[in-house]
Design a protein around this nucleic acid. Structure first.
Length: 559
RNA sequence: GCGCCUGUAGCUCAGCUGGAUAGAGCAACGGACUUCUAAUCCGUAGGUCGCACGUUCGAGUCGUGCCAGGCGCGCCA
């Protein structure tokens, strides 16, 4: 609808130019949007105001000219008006909205999808939590936002590749291994002193127990270094399995789990360093190797190899991002927690230094999550191991509610997650509000079927046009107008990678539907009217389902 | 001290990259179930958009400076 109007306006503008009524055919960017107030029509454009300067005409005068050229007998338009400082308001004929329903029924799950991505390859790297401890709710937020953003990109014609980067090398993993080894010895009855810097959580004991069952006393006979190395690998593997299981329970899967250790073993880190050395962006100072990130806008240069010969994690990060680009992705997206924001300049530096466009690299920074219970913060002590894990939250609250809550906030805002609120089946928890629409419609359709009412009409059914003429209640037109916006919402949400827009859209659509449901009956004595209304609500259901699917939330047939 | 994020109704949050009279939900108050699911709906009340300047036809939105909160500033991971 917007596109039709846009074309109409552009045509009128160029006619005006040909008639020499406009002195320029240079059309500035103008918008067409749904006004907040119904009195301002169905759609409105600021064309006259934004082009006032270029045309050297007062906005209202421009608007008058345009409207005269558009004429007042266009089939879609009921009336037009000029308002305020120069808005042109269009009132659309109610029946003009009906084709939206036909489009939804034709496209089904494809309604809302687009091809704006043109098959560009996008890699989305998210979660990538270290396998040294269980996932917490902060990871959950990144996981859900990343997964949903990926789904949106996919729906918009990008070729999306989901990847998890496993930090399975370096000091932390050593510590993990040591922690497990010490717990093994403990289980064997040895007296051990458990250092503070080791991981304190009970999951370490669990893994030690698994290890003991599988290997019995064997591990205790190994020399310290070998034992730690073995425990490290064993524990990291077990942690990854746990992490994957939790993510699975949220409906999140990856195309690839990328091992840092494997990357190091393949020599990619070394060669990346060599490459940068030869480009003189890496230099030596005080016995260490430094990356000259300052030249690319960072605050200070960063160490890549320490003077003890050990590479830093940054070295791996450089190689990893090089590798991403080498694999041919047009765009790479990293989803990080806000506590990592200081890393953006250096990673961006690494990308620029390799001759790539920094615009190919985007970071989604999810702000922190405060876990509460009835308004009281739940402590998140890291070292103590005394924190509520993501798994516990999912088990308590449920997958759909967890996902929806994370997706009803802009990821850029800090988020209070109250466990008690998340469990409530009230409107404080809008996931049920939206799902209820789906269930209600399923229920109506089921009943219609039982009463042998035809529920599916073909687009080419000759009776369709007459039946749709009966769909003209204000609430019905309101719903269809809202349905018409869906594809644009999806495009916007994908471009900005802001899934919360979809969640809010769905809540609004749900509101429209519930109001309609309470005011009008779908199954009536009038067969034609009933058919039309079924056609309408069936479309609503499809859009609800499409939206929920993008958010990774189920669409139940009964509740 | 420097950098990033946030500040909108009592609470939790939207606000479509600058549009018209700033919106939802919750909480409060008053109504609607013999009907296709009341996990719903209808109504009332609630605001100096942190503060101050600036940019322009027009600012919650953009710029600058303050104020408040969160996070980050290692040859740590």
């Amino acid at each position: 609808m917007k596109e039709i109007l846009r074309q109409l306006i552009l045509d009128a503008a160029s006619t005006a130019f040909e008639n020499k009524e406009f002195i320029s055919d240079d059309v500035p960017a103008f918008t067409i949007e749904e006004p907040k107030a119904d009195a301002h029509g169905d759609l409105s454009t600021n064309f006259a105001m934004v082009s006032a300067k270029a045309l050297k005409m007062p906005p209202r005068k421009i608007a008058e000219t345009l409207l005269r050229l558009i004429g007042d007998n266009h089939p879609l338009i009921e009336k037009t008006e000029i308002a305020g400082p120069g808005f042109i308001n269009f009132f659309i004929r109610p029946s003009a909205w009906h084709p939206v329903l036909m489009e939804i029924h034709e496209k089904e799950a494809g309604y809302g999808c687009s091809t704006i991505g043109h098959g560009q390859k996008v890699q989305v790297e998210f979660v990538s939590a270290n396998p040294t401890g269980p996932l917490h709710v902060g990871h959950g937020r990144g996981a859900i936002v990343g997964d949903s953003a990926a789904a949106l990109l996919s729906a918009c014609g990008y070729e999306v590749y989901r990847e998890y980067y496993i930090n399975d090398a370096g000091r932390q993993i050593q510590t993990l291994g040591l922690s497990v080894l010490l717990r093994c010895r403990e289980l064997a009855g040895q007296a051990v002193e458990f250092p503070e810097e080791c991981y304190q959580g009970d999951y370490i004991k669990d893994i030690a127990d698994e290890l003991r069952r599988e290997k019995e006393g064997w591990i205790l006979t190994l020399p310290e270094a070998e034992a730690v190395a073995f425990c490290s690998r064993f524990a990291a593997d077990r942690m990854i399995i746990r992490i994957r299981d939790v993510l699975d329970s949220l409906g999140i899967t990856f195309d690839n789990w990328y091992s840092e250790q494997a990357m190091i073993d393949s020599g990619k880190v070394e060669s990346a360093i060599e490459k940068f050395k030869s480009q003189n962006v890496i230099y030596e100072k005080d016995g260490a190797l430094w990356f000259n990130t300052t030249d690319f806008g960072d605050e200070k240069d960063r160490v890549v190899v320490r003077n003890n010969g050990q590479a830093t994690y940054f070295a791996s990060d450089i190689a990893y991002h090089q590798d991403k680009l080498d694999r041919g992705f047009d765009r790479i997206v990293d989803v990080w927690g806000a506590d990592h924001h200081g890393y953006i300049p250096r990673i961006r530096a690494a990308i620029e230094a390799s001759g790539k466009d920094k615009k190919q690299f985007t970071v989604i920074l999810t702000q922190l999550v405060n876990l509460l219970r009835q308004g009281v913060p739940v402590s998140m002590g890291k070292r103590s191991g005394q924190f509520i894990t993501l798994k516990e939250v999912i088990d308590e609250v449920g997958r759909d509610a967890v996902r929806f809550i994370f997706l009803t906030r802009n990821y850029d805002s800090p988020l209070d997650f109250d466990l008690e609120v998340a469990k409530q089946k009230t409107n404080e928890n809008p996931v049920f509000y939206v799902q209820y629409v789906h269930a209600r419609i399923s229920s109506i359709l089921k009943k219609a079927k039982e009463e042998s009412i035809q529920t599916v009409m073909g687009v080419n059914d000759p009776a369709l046009a007459d039946i749709l003429e009966l769909i003209r209640e204000p609430e019905e037109i309101q719903i269809i107008k809202h349905l018409a916006r869906y594809p644009e919402i999806i495009r916007q949400a994908a471009e900005l990678m802001e899934p919360h827009r979809v969640a809010f859209y769905l809540m609004e659509l749900a509101g429209n539907f519930h109001a309609y449901y309470n005011k009008h009956r779908v199954l009536t004595e009038d067969a034609a009217l009933t058919a039309g209304r079924i056609y309408l609500i069936f479309a609503v259901q499809k859009v609800i389902r499409n939206g929920l699917t993008l958010l990774g939330v189920s669409a139940p047939d009964s509740m």
